[in-house]
Amino acid sequence: MGALVLAQGGTFVPPGADSFFLPPIFGGVTKPMLLVALSVVIIGAYFVVTTRNMQLVPSKGQFAAEQIYDFSRNTARDQIGSKEFKPFIPLIFALFTFVLVNNLFGIIPLVQFPTMAKIGFPIALMLVVYVTYHGIGFKRHGFTGYLKGIMFPPNVPKPIYVLLAPIEFISKFVTNPFALAIRVFAAMFAGHLMLLVFTLGGQYLLVEASAFLKPVSLLGFGFAIVLTFVEALIQVLQAYIFALLSASYIGSALAEEH
């Protein structure tokens, strides 16, 4: 929004990156840390409760739980392959549900903070995926075979390897994994920042502006409401993309062409 000067009330200072640096609640524990722990409790409790007494005709809770599991299972199967996907279903399921709940915290009243907007959490998840897919790649193909498959794909003219080999190495070991983390972080950071701008801007206009400008605050609140629905869609989509790419990386590491 920039600096907004009104007839009365002075200058509006828009929220920025400092809005994401929350002070500790107690000791060194911050709100995002508590939310991450809370998300684990919510996910665990939800699936325990909804699947404790499974029924042929499922309740709404059981149906939602089954759909989430089926999505995770199908994503793992499609990206990893029908022969080897089963051991990775729990990982894809955990990644999807964890990212989803922590993203949705950004639009839940009173909570209103997407923990994936703190870069440390996406990086931690990325490292789990990174170690998993490179670990199984080295185990499946051996150290030399795995690196050879990455850097020297078949059916490529040999002179091209001079350029292709370092590009593929950097892509698989640096660019792709960090893009996995940055993608969800950037989406949650930008979305939450925009919500803050319109919400706080509307509040500022309502409280501080002259009577002539106070009705303009409705535009700020209106945009905030619309953005909340858009942000909800993006939050779900980013959880899906994170799980999908994670499964894709695992499938690529296991591929026979290495």
Rank of each mutant, 00 (worst) to 15 (best):
P90D: 11
Y130N: 04
L110M: 08
I119E: 09
A65E: 07
H258E: 02
F198W: 14
A94M: 12
I167V: 14
H134E: 08
G61D: 06
Y133P: 07
H192S: 10
L219C: 01
L34W: 02
I92L: 11
L219W: 05
L147N: 12
A117F: 10
E66H: 02
L219Y: 08
L104F: 15
R77C: 08
G220V: 05
A243T: 02
T97M: 10
F21A: 11
Y130A: 02
V5C: 04
L6M: 14
L219S: 01
A179N: 11
L227D: 02
V174Y: 06
A255W: 07
H134V: 06
P58H: 05
L200Y: 10
L163W: 11
P23E: 02
F26M: 10
L244R: 14
L35Y: 14
F185R: 05
Q203G: 15
Q67P: 00
E257K: 15
V131M: 15
I25K: 06
N102I: 08
M194T: 09
A247P: 05
T132W: 07
T228W: 10
L218G: 00
F143S: 03
K214A: 10
F152I: 10
G9D: 02
I136A: 05
A187P: 00
G106C: 10
A76W: 05
D18F: 02
T144Q: 09
P166A: 03
M126L: 07
E168N: 15
L34H: 00
I136F: 13
M126Y: 07
I241M: 13
L100F: 13
G10H: 03
V13H: 11
S246T: 02
I123M: 13
V29N: 04
L180C: 01
P23K: 04
V5P: 00
R183Y: 12
L35Q: 14
Y46G: 01
L110F: 13
P24E: 05
F105D: 04
P166E: 08
F47Y: 15
T11E: 13
A117R: 07
L244Y: 14
I123V: 15
L206N: 11
I182R: 05
V129N: 01
A247N: 04
R73G: 00
G106H: 08
A179M: 13
S252N: 12
G220R: 10
T97K: 08
L110H: 03
E256M: 01
P87W: 11
A190T: 12
V40N: 00
G149I: 09
S39F: 07
L180N: 01
A211V: 12
L213F: 14
A124D: 04
L227K: 03
Q62Y: 05
N103K: 03
R52A: 13
F98R: 06
I68H: 03
A255M: 02
V174T: 03
P109W: 08
M54R: 14
I241W: 12
G135I: 04
P153V: 09
E208P: 00
N74S: 12
I119V: 14
V207S: 03
D18S: 14
V162I: 15
S252P: 00
Q67V: 03
T115M: 03
F221G: 01
Q62M: 14
R183M: 13
A124G: 08
F185A: 03
L196V: 00
R140Y: 01
V230F: 13
P14S: 06
A224I: 06
F105I: 05
S72N: 01
K158I: 11
G251E: 07
G16Q: 09
I123F: 14
N155W: 04
L125F: 14
L219D: 00
R140I: 03
L127T: 10
F47N: 11
P154S: 09
